[in-house]
């Protein structure tokens, strides 16, 4: 009888132990899970890639040029001038790339026209800057070549995307990627461009230190609330360089609050992922 009672007591204790483990799990995960409910509308992620290319000595060029294009993972390329912090160092070529992975409804079709315009403006700005910074001509040429290459690849993808979009036009819901949806997310595109510009502007990198950060990536996910405030910064993947990690964190902090989210187009609070990749850093 006593043995049975002891066993029963032990069982009860283990039951409570399991309950305690469960409750602790719930309590500890609450700070992580609760922000998910803050985002009122969470749409299945679509991937968009935003690339910013800053070229030396082209400060007068427009900040951002959008170039959305359709693909299996819809990509949007944006190129623009990064404000060069040290124009007195023309030999310093700096191209920083930010890939944004946005978890909202995103376009599949492209703005080829916009990219062409961007390219044109870029060429003009580079042309103006060339006499002043002749030493960086090679870098400019290589960047332009890269852009042209991308334009060509975007064209191919656009054709593919158009045919695919026509076939999938009848798909209902938030992820069909039809032309209508693309028009609907133009506000989203503008917003993305805006926040990318801001973050890019606030991303301060010192070249000597960046030399060791070359080829590294920092993946960050932020929650943007409707009022534009950044709710949470989560490092999905850090680089081995603490300096680079810090620079990304500081850039995001400095950028908060971002502009308020546009109304409609599925924006009620979003998660946006960024991959910060310093590229083309030369001494």
């Amino acid at each position: 009888m006593k043995k049975g009672q002891i066993l029963y007591s032990e069982k009860r204790f283990y039951l409570w132990l399991a309950v305690a483990v469960l409750l602790h799990g719930v309590v500890l995960s609450a700070p992580y899970v609760l922000p998910l409910f803050d985002v009122r509308k969470h749409v299945e992620p679509k991937v968009v890639s935003i690339t910013l290319v800053s070229l030396p000595g082209a400060e007068s060029a427009p900040a951002l040029v959008a170039n959305p294009s359709p693909s299996a993972l819809p990509q949007q390329e944006k190129s623009g001038q990064h404000p060069e912090s040290a124009p007195s160092l023309p030999s310093t070529s700096r191209a920083a790339r930010i890939e944004a992975v946005e978890k909202t409804a995103l376009p599949k079709s492209s703005g080829k026209q916009e990219l062409s315009n961007a390219l044109e403006r870029l060429k003009q700005s580079v042309g103006k800057a060339q006499p002043q910074y002749s030493s960086s001509a090679n870098t400019v040429k290589s960047a332009l070549a890269e852009l042209e290459k991308r334009v060509n690849s975007e064209k191919v993808l656009a054709v593919e995307g158009a045919s695919r979009g026509a076939g999938g036009g009848g798909v209902a819901g938030g992820n069909s990627g039809t032309g209508k949806e693309y028009r609907g997310s133009s506000a989203a595109n503008a917003y993305k461009m805006k926040i990318t510009t801001i973050i890019k502007r606030n991303w301060e990198l010192a070249n000597p230190r960046l030399k060791s950060s070359f080829g590294m990536k920092v993946s960050v996910r932020i929650t943007i609330f409707p009022d534009g405030s950044i709710g949470q910064i989560l490092f999905v993947k850090k680089s081995s360089s603490e300096y680079l990690n810090n620079s990304v964190k500081k850039a995001l902090e400095k950028s908060s609050p971002l502009p308020p989210l546009p109304k409609g187009d599925g924006f009620g609070g979003v998660w946006v992922g960024f991959v910060f990749t310093p590229e083309g850093i030369e001494k």
Binding site: Y32, P35, I230, I233, F235, N246, K249, E253, S256
Partner: peptide, 15 residues
Amino acid sequence: NNIASTSMFDSKLGI
């Protein structure tokens, strides 16, 4: 180093 230094971030970052 990924802790935000401002109070806004401190209040919203998870454990």
